[in-house]
Amino acid sequence: MAIGEVLSADLIKSKIYTAVNTIETMLIGVITSVDHVNLKYGVQPVLNRYDDGDKEFVESAILFECPMMSNKCGSFFIRLPYEVGDMVYVGCSKYSVDEAISDNLTKPNRMYGVQQFRQIDGVILGGILSDSEQRLSSDNTSDLLIQNRKTNDKFVILANGGIELVTKTKVIVDSPETEVSGNLTVNGNIIGKSNINIEGSGTIGTVTTKKGTTLDGHTHPYNPGSNPTTSTGAGEG
């Protein structure tokens, strides 16, 4: 093989190598900024890229306003509150993400001819648990679990049936009307700040008035004799 042919082959190989190495498919990064309203985040790739010119590894550029793949449909959505420092898995779109998500309509690709599979066209596909961070709870490994690792509050749909809500703080239900079908057991005090209407019969324990009178042995004075009054008068206490 002639020297010219060898140089030409090496040049072709070099160009192919360079072209292949500029194709980005997937990468792992760490969130640097958050925009929970628009579901766009800054992402810093964790692995440095190799600079062929300087012959050394340099820090990869931050992906700004990287969209998050989300669980949404129609008017419903589930928003995961990613934080700065969270590790995420990013997939790189073949074409321009900004161009594609500008609206929900089909349109010509104005970025046609531009390099495909670029890092700047990344989409966050989900979170990754790094080996250096806090482990997940070993509880409810067979159940559907939503848990706050800082407070240990959790919502669990049990595999064998039933639902558990566990928290050390207040649970707020903000609704004009709440209906419970079935028996209700309360292991604690019930504080009513308005009227209580009960239909049907029931059994209650000791009842004490606001002034401290216990109704279990509560009596009213009356006027004895052959001609008592019809009214027993006001209750004591």
Score class of each variant (00 low, 15 high):
residue 40 K to T: 13
residue 118 R to P: 02
residue 144 L to G: 06
residue 68 M to G: 07
residue 53 G to R: 04
residue 123 V to G: 01
residue 40 K to G: 07
residue 148 N to K: 06
residue 97 V to M: 08
residue 34 V to Q: 06
residue 66 C to L: 04
residue 25 T to E: 06
residue 9 A to M: 15
residue 223 N to F: 03
residue 114 V to F: 13
residue 87 M to W: 01
residue 98 D to G: 11
residue 146 I to L: 02
residue 126 G to S: 12
residue 13 K to Y: 15
residue 10 D to K: 15
residue 68 M to W: 00
residue 171 V to F: 01
residue 181 S to I: 08
residue 214 T to G: 03
residue 35 D to S: 02
residue 210 K to D: 06
residue 2 A to P: 07
residue 64 F to P: 02
residue 195 N to W: 05
residue 154 K to Q: 05
residue 223 N to I: 04
residue 44 Q to F: 01
residue 144 L to W: 11
residue 127 G to K: 08
residue 93 S to V: 03
residue 234 A to N: 12
residue 20 V to M: 02
residue 130 S to Y: 13
residue 144 L to M: 12
residue 204 I to L: 14
residue 183 N to R: 10
residue 218 H to R: 13
residue 81 P to W: 06
residue 186 V to I: 15
residue 182 G to D: 08
residue 104 N to A: 15
residue 232 T to E: 14
residue 99 E to N: 08
residue 14 S to K: 15
residue 125 L to E: 03
residue 236 E to R: 09
residue 97 V to W: 00
residue 147 Q to R: 02
residue 98 D to I: 05
residue 113 G to V: 09
residue 38 N to V: 05
residue 85 G to R: 05
residue 150 K to D: 10
residue 182 G to H: 06
residue 141 T to Y: 06
residue 136 L to V: 00
residue 220 H to R: 09
residue 10 D to E: 15
residue 92 C to Q: 00
residue 52 D to Y: 04
residue 169 T to G: 09
residue 217 G to C: 09
residue 42 G to H: 03
residue 217 G to F: 08
residue 163 I to P: 10
residue 45 P to D: 07
residue 55 K to M: 09
residue 204 I to Y: 14
residue 217 G to Y: 05
